[in-house]
């Protein structure tokens, strides 16, 4: 891995500096796997940091800068994957799991509540139901 020169950038405003930091944090370095541009020591990461900085100073928007990298390196550079058909399950997954879990807990609780409150067992309840039903219905059983 080549080492980068690691030159500090000068920013005109704190907002600009913050934007730069946010961008560098959410973009992935390609050479050194699984590090952000901000954290990477690789030379390519420094080159890309330079590009991000240059575009930022030129007044380009965050979206333009991100698009610049995505058209060249693909969605892989984004640590926050965009919501697309391929990532729908990724984003929906945790919420589906949560809803599923709530449903299961709810069902068990209702089952449990039936166990707790009525003094009658299921069998007794059925017998009671049959007895209380009008005779017309009873014949059909």
């Amino acid at each position: 891995m080549l080492q980068a020169a690691d030159v500090p950038f000068e920013f005109s405003t704190p907002e600009q500096e913050q934007r730069y930091k946010d961008l560098a944090e959410q973009l992935r370095c390609l050479v050194c796997q699984n590090q952000s541009l901000a954290d990477s020591h690789a030379e390519l990461a420094q080159d890309l940091r330079n590009e991000v900085y240059r575009m930022l100073v030129q007044g380009q928007s965050d979206k333009e800068i991100i698009d610049f990298l995505v058209t060249r390196y693909g969605d892989f550079v984004l640590f926050k994957p965009p919501l697309k058909s391929g990532t729908a399950l990724l984003w929906a997954g945790p919420f589906l799991m949560l809803i599923g879990a709530i449903l299961i807990v709810f069902r068990l609780t209702r089952k449990n509540a039936r166990l707790v409150s009525p003094e009658l067992s299921n069998h007794d309840q059925q017998r009671l139901d049959t007895l209380l039903k009008p005779p017309a219905d009873r014949k059909r059983i």
Binding site: S36, F76, K80, G86
Partner: peptide
């Protein structure tokens, strides 16, 4: 395995 390429990093994990 389905033929794509995606990164899932800190922003995803933090938000879910």
């Amino acid at each position: 395995t389905l033929g794509g390429k995606v990164s899932v990093g800190a922003p995803y994990f933090n938000s879910v």
